[in-house]
Amino acid sequence: MTILEAARKLNAEVIVEGDAVANSIRHVVASDLMSDVLLVDDEDILLLTSLASDQVLRTAHIIGAVGVIVVNGKSLPTSMVQVARDLGITLIKSDKNKFDACIAVHKALESA
């Protein structure tokens, strides 16, 4: 399942389409602590977070994530959209809370 397919399942809004939209999601990390995200060694990660800051995208870029879904309907700062474009990271916004978003992604991955 690609990140755009995940966005459709979550009924989420795609803000920026990045470079890895065709990659299949292989792992999901849900965290607001970027320090923890940086400890993950997996490839093609989908990052779910309720943190709406540039650092989320910078972290996603460092770990080569396929993209970021910001949950809880957080409003995204303009700078975040620009950083996503600059770094080629897919940025998605979902109104679901993190728990429900995780369940929805898990179900979608199982049926994919």
Partner: peptide, 17 residues
């Protein structure tokens, strides 16, 4: 600092890793 997602005390540990 923690509100930005950092400050968990894993930075230097992760660099060493």
């Amino acid at each position: 600092i923690r509100s930005f997602g950092f400050g968990a005390g894993m930075g230097l540990v992760n660099v060493k890793r």
